[in-house]
Nucleic acid binder design. Structure first.
Lengths: 133, 133
DNA sequence: GTTACTACTATCCTTTTGTATACTAGTAAC
DNA sequence: GTTACTAGTATACAAAAGGATAGTAGTAAC
């Protein structure tokens, strides 16, 4: 059976380039939360508590430290509105965060596809189990 | 000064979809090593030690456990060649690993761009420091 | 007999990441 | 006076991820 396997293989130099590049990328945007915070802010600027509600499951302590990282790396800006009561702090995605658009698009598409696949697999397992019972 | 900020904002439903999808994606391909192992294997099938040499910095213990995860999730297959001496084990990327192509392409492009930016910033810092000295 | 190669696993340790709970100041509503 | 809201920080702890080192079996070269 002549099976089609990898239609496109990476050359050695391409492989090394990709390895380094993805390593660099994950150094700043890796981890469970960073991209999700950026996505949440791509809906528009948000306050701290609002952000915590949008990014489900994150604690205040972690959100705070992630925001500091993201600010340091130029992905978000922190704006304090001192004229209001109580003082309101707004976080906003920068243009550099926007440069991740293609990454987020690809990741969203893949994640959506993957979720469907997992769901289908779970259903198949269900069928098998009920047949055996 | 009329500044152009976010040219495109996500709608609330798109934001939630993206948030979930990226969460699902990172659940299986998140972490420091998984994507890098997949990249290394996109050059072609590789043996354990060969893989460890390609993915710089990974320990045998971590590589072994990552490979098990990747196999379980359908990204790689493990083929044992028992006829040779010593027994050789080859790892190969599957078609499902190939489905990550767009993600890897986007991440590689972004990572390369980011690396250049960081380098430029470091050079600027250098200049400033030497001026002050 | 010693060394080296294969593909790992075992053990121990450190670092990173995350959770829970309580607390801060200042004001406004009840 | 009590509660609630703002945006966090402090503390203590637990869990997950990762790293370093050593060791396994079997063979083959020196």
């Amino acid at each position: 059976m002549p099976e089609i396997k990898n239609s496109k293989r990476l050359s050695r130099p391409d492989c090394v380039t990709s390895l380094n590049a993805v390593g660099d990328a994950f150094y700043v945007i890796g981890g469970k939360w960073k991209l999700r915070i950026i996505i949440a802010l791509s809906e528009g600027p948000k306050r701290f508590n609002e952000l915590q509600r949008t990014v489900e499951g994150i604690s205040a302590r972690v959100l705070s430290s992630e925001l500091k990282d993201l600010e340091m790396n130029g992905f978000v800006t922190r704006n304090v509105h001192a004229e209001t009561f109580p003082v309101v702090v707004e976080y906003e995605a920068t243009g550099y965060a926007d440069s991740l658009r293609d990454v987020l698009k690809a990741l969203t598409a893949w994640g959506t596809m993957h979720r469907k696949r997992i769901k289908r697999q779970a259903e198949m397992e269900q069928q098998k189990t009920s047949k055996h019972a």
